[in-house]
Amino acid sequence: MYKKSLLPIAIALASQATITVADQQIEVQSVYSTRTFYGESAENAASEISKLTKGELSLNVYDPGELVPPMETLNSVSSGAVPAGWSSLGTFSDTIPMANAYGLLPFSPSAEIFFSWTFFGEGLDLIQNELDQYNVKVIPCAYVPQEAGGWFNKKIESVDDFNGLSIRIVGAGSRVYEKLGATPQLLPSNEVYLSLERGRIDAVEFSVPQVDNAMGLSEIADYYYFPGWHSGPTWLAYYINQSVWDDLSEQQQTAVNTACMANIQKDINTLVPMQDDVLAEIESGDTEVLRFPDEVLTELHNVWLEVVEEEKQRNPGFATAYESLMDHASKYERWNELQAMPDILNK
């Protein structure tokens, strides 16, 4: 687990961070391979930052493990051992329970609501206040659609089928599976394929079809389930050591924020349509694409209602973020009711 006691190390390593910024080169440890759109999106944003600053600021993105192990990214950015990281908040949910409200929320509001809450509501301020304790600046910089439900080598016909399964999963959904008798496993992306292939785990939730298929999961799983009830839409972000961020000029900081907002919009425009061809490719092979039965989803939701109350009691930070998000979502209810079309038009 990441420790807040690591913060004093930042002082000892301040000279390293300062040298990096003086060269206008910021090394970024990505938690995701740059061969997937997760990692590629970090490179795309970095390219735009370089253009906006006319080459005066470069963010150099490294694949998992090239600078530090993926699960040590937050610690390393906090201490100044590396200047920046690239990840979803979910990677750090064991350290920062509030992160479970940021895209790792089972039965989450829509992307429209989540991103509105992030930038127009309290979302970004709340998580930044939490990360201030770690000496880390967060810059949301990419859109990730709602994930798939996961890859299984066992057909799921009732919640009893989860009992005894070892499942790779991050976020609060892991506690739902745990209550149903499964054993959640938190694994970095570079260990997922081998763990499923060699039977160390029985199922995997990871991402959307484009990423999952690039990892080769369709080669080793019999069933690919939807919907991704356990994890709503979210963003990936640069996590930058606060001292490194503070040493950037105002113009450079503006360039980073501007490039990241443009990168999010680009992802929103392109990512969901791109999944259609990938799904067709998966279905042309041996993997069967299925929906969880409605009865299973209903029971998962019932268990989630228990978990969310427990989580709110256990983690005040999560409770604050969750209530804020739900309050923001309520502002859409009247609008959506008035704008709803008859069911016949939706068929």
Rank of each mutant, 00 (worst) to 15 (best):
E283L: 14
V176W: 02
P227Y: 06
M326K: 09
S207W: 08
G285Y: 04
T183F: 06
G121T: 02
E147S: 08
F119L: 15
I264E: 00
T270D: 00
E130R: 04
I169Q: 14
G90A: 13
L236H: 03
E147Q: 07
L105Q: 08
C141L: 07
E197V: 06
G216F: 10
K331E: 15
E40D: 14
Q251H: 11
P140W: 05
S108N: 04
F226R: 15
L187K: 10
H230G: 12
F120S: 15
I156P: 12
S93Y: 07
A221V: 05
E250F: 02
N213Q: 12
T53D: 06
E281G: 09
L105K: 06
M326Q: 06
F162Y: 13
D246H: 13
E48C: 06
I26A: 04
P106T: 03
S189P: 08
E191S: 11
A22H: 10
N163V: 10
M261S: 09
M71D: 15
Y62H: 15
Y143Q: 01
Q25Y: 08
P293R: 07
S41D: 06
D247M: 13
V31H: 00
I201N: 12
K266L: 04
S243A: 10
P145G: 01
S218M: 11
Y143E: 00
E288F: 10
V278N: 09
W151A: 14
S88T: 02
V138T: 05
S50G: 09
T118D: 00
Q242E: 15
K3G: 01
S189R: 06
L104E: 03
V28W: 00
K331T: 13
E283D: 14
E43S: 11
L105N: 06
S79K: 15
E122C: 05
P293V: 02
I220K: 13
G103I: 00
Y225E: 12
Y193A: 10
